[in-house]
Amino acid sequence: MSENIHLLVVDDDREIRDLLTRYLTRHGYRVTAARDGQEMRKFLADRNIDLIVLDLMLPGEDGLALCRAIRAESGPPVVMLSAMGEDADRILGLEIGADDYLPKPFNPRELVARIKAVLRRSQSANVGGSPAAGAFSFAGYMLDPAQRRLSAASGEEIALTAGEYELLLALVQRPRRVLSRDDLLEITRGRAAGPFDRSIDVQISRLRRKIETDPADPAIIKTVRSGGYIFSAEVGTP
């Protein structure tokens, strides 16, 4: 399966590019390496890329600017790499659309695990036709797991990153139930939260901006003090 997956590694450190290229190739992936945003854009235009491993600190346009551009163009999923201690930058990366992040230095085996998890979340069925059995309706929205698609009452599709989709699905499948950050991270990513891991909070904030009438006073995804979050909308079938 992995031999059909084409990864793009973007890092200005030649040693890291070469190391990741060799390691990911040994795990069966096709790998292209770029040293900056200019090369990244060239390869995205010329090749079919399934996922980007993107360093935060790059010459010229940094990883945050590039991630924002990728997401604006509905580009492939992004796993961002960032130096340890840059929590604010990692959180900002998630806010603008990175699907996961990994602090440097990192274990290459963990990177492979993160890549596999993001690719699983981002795989979607062919779009088209009627909603499949098992679709959910709530607050005027329809979430179709068969197509991994969220649409408004008007029929307009609401773009979600892979991480946002998995988080929304986890909430919709467990309405009126308090879920802690640890619960949600385990459900969506299969791992426990670290003491400073705020990625769930970041993605909740992004979801609220997309589905709440007033994100500052949410009625669908509510915060439970010292508890986590609860999906308060009534969930039905289309």
Rank of each mutant, 00 (worst) to 15 (best):
S2D: 02
I5M: 03
H6I: 00
V10F: 09
D11C: 14
D12P: 14
D13W: 01
E15F: 07
L19Y: 02
L20T: 09
T21E: 08
L24Y: 11
R26N: 09
H27S: 05
G28E: 13
Y29I: 11
A33R: 02
R35I: 05
D36V: 08
G37E: 11
G37H: 13
Q38G: 04
M40C: 11
M40G: 05
L44Y: 04
A45W: 03
D46T: 09
R47V: 07
I49K: 06
I52H: 03
L54W: 08
D55T: 15
M57G: 02
G60Q: 12
G60I: 06
I70F: 01
I70N: 01
E73I: 12
P76Q: 06
P76F: 01
V78F: 04
V79Q: 03
V79Y: 10
S82R: 04
S82H: 08
A83P: 15
M84N: 05
M84F: 12
G85M: 09
E86D: 15
E86W: 01
E86L: 15
A88V: 14
I91S: 09
G93S: 14
E95P: 01
E95F: 04
I96N: 01
D100M: 04
P105K: 15
F106C: 05
R109D: 14
E110P: 02
L111E: 02
I115A: 04
K116Y: 00
A117M: 10
V118A: 02
Q123T: 13
Q123V: 09
N126R: 11
N126V: 13
V127Y: 12
P131E: 11
A133K: 15
G134V: 14
F136L: 14
Y141E: 00
M142R: 15
L143N: 05
D144E: 06
P145S: 04
A146H: 12
Q147C: 04
Q147D: 05
R149E: 11
R149Y: 07
R149L: 10
G155K: 03
G155P: 07
L160T: 10
T161S: 14
T161N: 05
A162M: 13
Y165D: 01
Y165L: 09
Y165N: 03
L167R: 00
L167G: 02
L168E: 15
L171D: 06
V172P: 01
Q173M: 03
R177I: 15
S180K: 02
L184G: 06
L184T: 11
E186Q: 12
T188D: 07
G190F: 02
R191Y: 00
A193I: 04
P195C: 07
P195Q: 03
P195H: 09
F196P: 02
F196S: 08
R198D: 15
R198L: 04
S199H: 10
S199K: 04
S199A: 08
I200R: 06
I200L: 09
D201K: 05
D201H: 13
D201W: 01
V202M: 12
V202A: 15
Q203F: 01
S205I: 02
R208I: 00
E212Q: 12
T213N: 09
D214P: 02
D214F: 07
D214A: 11
P215G: 06
A216V: 12
D217L: 13
A219F: 05
A219Y: 00
A219N: 12
I220N: 00
T223C: 05
R225E: 01
S226F: 10
Y229Q: 10
A233L: 06
A233T: 14
E234H: 10
P238D: 11
